[in-house]
Protein backbone atom coordinates (compact mmCIF):
# COMPACT_ATOMS: atom_id res chain seq x y z
CA UNK A 1 0.00 0.00 0.00
CA UNK A 2 2.78 2.42 1.00
CA UNK A 3 6.32 1.83 -0.17
CA UNK A 4 9.39 3.93 0.65
CA UNK A 5 12.07 3.04 -1.88
CA UNK A 6 15.59 4.03 -0.74
CA UNK A 7 14.50 7.49 0.33
CA UNK A 8 17.13 10.04 1.33
CA UNK A 9 16.44 13.59 2.43
CA UNK A 10 19.22 16.13 2.79
CA UNK A 11 18.24 19.69 3.73
CA UNK A 12 19.94 22.69 2.12
CA UNK A 13 22.06 23.18 5.25
CA UNK A 14 23.49 19.65 4.58
CA UNK A 15 21.75 18.07 7.57
CA UNK A 16 20.65 14.55 6.71
CA UNK A 17 17.08 13.81 7.82
CA UNK A 18 16.67 10.42 6.13
CA UNK A 19 19.29 8.06 4.80
CA UNK A 20 18.40 5.34 2.34
CA UNK A 21 15.15 4.40 4.06
CA UNK A 22 13.20 1.46 2.63
CA UNK A 23 10.03 -0.07 4.09
CA UNK A 24 6.48 -0.89 3.13
CA UNK A 25 3.14 -0.75 4.94
CA UNK A 26 0.27 -3.10 4.14
CA UNK A 27 -3.43 -2.20 4.24
CA UNK A 28 -5.08 -2.36 7.71
CA UNK A 29 -1.70 -2.38 9.47
CA UNK A 30 -1.08 -0.43 12.68
CA UNK A 31 2.52 0.75 12.45
CA UNK A 32 4.32 2.76 15.11
CA UNK A 33 7.45 4.69 14.23
CA UNK A 34 9.64 5.38 17.26
CA UNK A 35 12.89 7.21 17.81
CA UNK A 36 14.42 10.18 19.51
CA UNK A 37 13.76 13.75 18.38
CA UNK A 38 15.52 14.33 15.08
CA UNK A 39 15.56 10.64 14.18
CA UNK A 40 13.50 11.35 11.04
CA UNK A 41 10.00 10.22 12.08
CA UNK A 42 8.23 13.44 11.11
CA UNK A 43 10.22 13.69 7.86
CA UNK A 44 8.85 10.28 6.85
CA UNK A 45 5.30 11.53 7.39
CA UNK A 46 6.00 14.76 5.48
CA UNK A 47 7.35 12.69 2.59
CA UNK A 48 4.23 10.55 2.58
CA UNK A 49 2.00 13.66 2.43
CA UNK A 50 4.14 15.19 -0.35
CA UNK A 51 4.85 18.09 1.96
CA UNK A 52 8.58 17.54 1.43
CA UNK A 53 10.35 16.11 -1.60
CA UNK A 54 13.00 13.41 -1.25
CA UNK A 55 16.53 14.20 -2.34
CA UNK A 56 16.81 10.64 -3.61
CA UNK A 57 14.41 7.69 -3.86
CA UNK A 58 10.66 7.46 -4.29
CA UNK A 59 7.54 7.19 -2.16
CA UNK A 60 4.71 5.10 -3.58
CA UNK A 61 1.08 5.03 -2.54
CA UNK A 62 -0.40 1.95 -4.14
CA UNK A 63 1.38 2.18 -7.51
CA UNK A 64 1.62 6.00 -7.65
CA UNK A 65 4.78 7.96 -6.94
CA UNK A 66 3.27 10.67 -4.72
CA UNK A 67 5.93 13.21 -5.71
CA UNK A 68 4.93 12.99 -9.36
CA UNK A 69 1.37 14.14 -8.62
CA UNK A 70 0.26 17.57 -9.73
CA UNK A 71 -1.37 20.06 -7.33
CA UNK A 72 -4.92 18.89 -7.90
CA UNK A 73 -3.94 15.24 -7.56
CA UNK A 74 -2.05 16.03 -4.35
CA UNK A 75 -5.23 17.58 -2.92
CA UNK A 76 -7.22 14.48 -3.86
CA UNK A 77 -4.52 12.24 -2.45
CA UNK A 78 -4.35 14.13 0.86
CA UNK A 79 -8.09 13.69 1.30
CA UNK A 80 -7.47 9.94 1.47
CA UNK A 81 -5.18 10.44 4.45
CA UNK A 82 -6.36 11.71 7.82
CA UNK A 83 -3.72 13.70 9.72
CA UNK A 84 -3.47 14.11 13.50
CA UNK A 85 -0.74 16.38 14.88
CA UNK A 86 0.88 16.78 18.29
CA UNK A 87 -0.17 20.46 18.39
CA UNK A 88 -3.72 19.61 17.16
CA UNK A 89 -3.67 22.30 14.43
CA UNK A 90 -7.34 23.08 14.62
CA UNK A 91 -8.65 26.17 12.86
CA UNK A 92 -9.02 28.61 15.78
CA UNK A 93 -11.80 30.71 14.22
CA UNK A 94 -14.02 27.75 13.53
CA UNK A 95 -16.16 25.84 15.98
CA UNK A 96 -15.62 22.13 16.59
CA UNK A 97 -18.42 21.37 14.15
CA UNK A 98 -17.00 23.72 11.49
CA UNK A 99 -13.47 22.34 11.89
CA UNK A 100 -14.72 18.90 11.01
CA UNK A 101 -17.14 20.13 8.37
CA UNK A 102 -14.31 22.05 6.69
CA UNK A 103 -12.53 18.84 5.71
CA UNK A 104 -15.73 17.53 4.14
CA UNK A 105 -16.43 20.85 2.39
CA UNK A 106 -12.90 20.85 1.01
CA UNK A 107 -13.61 17.44 -0.51
CA UNK A 108 -16.73 18.84 -2.14
CA UNK A 109 -19.21 16.79 -0.14
CA UNK A 110 -22.82 17.98 -0.21
CA UNK A 111 -24.37 19.83 2.73
CA UNK A 112 -26.77 16.99 3.62
CA UNK A 113 -23.92 14.53 3.93
CA UNK A 114 -21.98 16.95 6.13
CA UNK A 115 -25.02 17.49 8.35
CA UNK A 116 -25.37 13.72 8.76
CA UNK A 117 -21.72 12.70 9.18
CA UNK A 118 -20.30 15.40 11.49
CA UNK A 119 -22.59 14.61 14.46
CA UNK A 120 -21.91 10.93 13.90
CA UNK A 121 -18.15 11.31 14.08
CA UNK A 122 -18.45 13.67 17.07
CA UNK A 123 -20.39 10.91 18.79
CA UNK A 124 -17.57 8.51 18.01
CA UNK A 125 -15.01 10.69 19.84
CA UNK A 126 -17.57 11.56 22.54
CA UNK A 127 -17.68 15.30 21.85
CA UNK A 128 -21.26 15.77 20.66
CA UNK A 129 -21.94 18.29 23.44
CA UNK A 130 -18.98 20.49 22.41
CA UNK A 131 -19.96 20.90 18.77
CA UNK A 132 -20.43 24.69 18.98
CA UNK A 133 -17.39 25.44 21.14
CA UNK A 134 -14.28 27.07 19.72
CA UNK A 135 -10.92 25.25 20.08
CA UNK A 136 -9.69 27.67 22.78
CA UNK A 137 -12.59 26.55 24.97
CA UNK A 138 -11.48 22.90 24.94
CA UNK A 139 -8.92 20.91 26.97
CA UNK A 140 -5.89 19.35 25.26
CA UNK A 141 -7.51 15.91 25.18
CA UNK A 142 -10.72 17.32 23.72
CA UNK A 143 -8.78 19.20 21.05
CA UNK A 144 -6.97 16.02 20.05
CA UNK A 145 -10.27 14.17 19.86
CA UNK A 146 -11.59 16.90 17.54
CA UNK A 147 -8.46 16.47 15.43
CA UNK A 148 -9.07 12.72 15.24
CA UNK A 149 -12.71 13.29 14.33
CA UNK A 150 -11.56 15.66 11.59
CA UNK A 151 -9.09 13.08 10.30
CA UNK A 152 -11.77 10.37 10.33
CA UNK A 153 -14.73 12.13 8.84
CA UNK A 154 -13.72 11.64 5.20
CA UNK A 155 -13.33 7.88 5.84
CA UNK A 156 -9.67 7.95 4.81
CA UNK A 157 -7.59 4.93 3.81
CA UNK A 158 -4.88 5.88 6.31
CA UNK A 159 -4.73 7.81 9.56
CA UNK A 160 -1.35 9.40 10.17
CA UNK A 161 -0.83 10.51 13.77
CA UNK A 162 2.35 12.50 14.46
CA UNK A 163 3.03 12.22 18.21
CA UNK A 164 -0.66 12.73 18.97
CA UNK A 165 -0.19 12.18 22.69
CA UNK A 166 2.87 14.41 23.10
CA UNK A 167 0.86 17.18 24.78
CA UNK A 168 -1.57 15.01 26.70
CA UNK A 169 -1.82 13.64 30.26
CA UNK A 170 -1.91 9.83 30.77
CA UNK A 171 -5.71 9.59 30.89
CA UNK A 172 -6.17 11.50 27.64
CA UNK A 173 -3.25 9.59 26.11
CA UNK A 174 -5.03 6.34 26.90
CA UNK A 175 -8.28 7.65 25.36
CA UNK A 176 -6.56 8.74 22.17
CA UNK A 177 -4.77 5.42 21.76
CA UNK A 178 -8.02 3.53 22.34
CA UNK A 179 -9.71 5.59 19.61
CA UNK A 180 -6.83 4.91 17.21
CA UNK A 181 -7.04 1.18 17.97
CA UNK A 182 -10.76 1.24 17.33
CA UNK A 183 -10.22 3.00 14.00
CA UNK A 184 -7.67 0.34 13.05
CA UNK A 185 -10.02 -2.45 14.09
CA UNK A 186 -12.60 -0.99 11.72
CA UNK A 187 -10.15 -1.46 8.85
CA UNK A 188 -8.21 1.80 8.51
CA UNK A 189 -4.42 1.74 8.29
CA UNK A 190 -2.85 3.71 11.16
CA UNK A 191 0.67 5.16 11.22
CA UNK A 192 1.67 6.51 14.59
CA UNK A 193 4.87 8.23 15.64
CA UNK A 194 5.52 8.50 19.33
CA UNK A 195 8.03 8.78 22.17
CA UNK A 196 5.74 7.06 24.60
CA UNK A 197 7.08 3.67 25.66
CA UNK A 198 3.87 2.72 27.45
CA UNK A 199 1.78 3.11 24.32
CA UNK A 200 4.07 0.99 22.16
CA UNK A 201 4.34 -1.76 24.72
CA UNK A 202 0.56 -1.92 25.19
CA UNK A 203 -0.23 -1.99 21.47
CA UNK A 204 1.65 -5.13 20.47
CA UNK A 205 1.73 -4.09 16.79
CA UNK A 206 4.52 -3.49 14.29
CA UNK A 207 7.24 -1.04 15.42
CA UNK A 208 9.79 0.67 13.19
CA UNK A 209 12.65 2.15 15.24
CA UNK A 210 14.72 4.98 13.78
CA UNK A 211 17.97 6.65 14.65
CA UNK A 212 19.79 9.46 12.85
CA UNK A 213 17.70 9.10 9.72
CA UNK A 214 18.06 5.33 9.42
CA UNK A 215 15.79 2.40 10.26
CA UNK A 216 17.56 0.40 12.93
CA UNK A 217 14.81 -2.08 13.71
CA UNK A 218 11.51 -3.21 12.17
CA UNK A 219 9.64 -5.72 14.39
CA UNK A 220 6.27 -7.34 13.63
CA UNK A 221 5.15 -7.19 17.27
CA UNK A 222 7.66 -4.81 18.69
CA UNK A 223 8.37 -3.21 22.02
CA UNK A 224 9.81 0.23 22.61
CA UNK A 225 13.50 -0.40 22.51
CA UNK A 226 16.14 1.83 20.99
Amino acid sequence: MIFFDRVTKVYPDSSVALQNVTFSIEPKEFVSIVGQSGAGKTTILKMLLAEEHPTEGQVFYESTDVHQLNKREINDFRRRIGMVFQDFRLLPDKTVYENIAFTMEASGRPDEEIAADVPHVLELVDLHDKAWNFPNELSGGEKQRVAIARALVNQPDIIVADEPTGNLDPVNTYDVVQILKKINDLGTTVILTTHNKGIIDSLGHRVIAMEKGKIIRDDKEGKYFI
Binding site: L49, E51, N75, R79, F102, A106, S107
Partner: peptide, 16 residues
Amino acid sequence: RDEIGVMRLVGASTAY
Protein backbone atom coordinates in the same frame (compact mmCIF):
# COMPACT_ATOMS: atom_id res chain seq x y z
CA ARG B 1 -0.49 31.20 7.91
CA ASP B 2 -0.65 28.09 10.11
CA GLU B 3 -4.31 27.62 9.34
CA ILE B 4 -3.59 27.89 5.63
CA GLY B 5 -1.03 25.09 6.04
CA VAL B 6 -3.59 22.92 7.85
CA MET B 7 -6.18 23.55 5.15
CA ARG B 8 -3.63 22.43 2.60
CA LEU B 9 -2.92 19.25 4.53
CA VAL B 10 -6.56 18.27 4.73
CA GLY B 11 -6.64 18.52 0.94
CA ALA B 12 -8.39 21.84 0.39
CA SER B 13 -7.84 23.29 -3.09
CA THR B 14 -6.14 26.63 -3.66
CA ALA B 15 -9.37 28.32 -4.66
CA TYR B 16 -11.16 26.95 -1.60
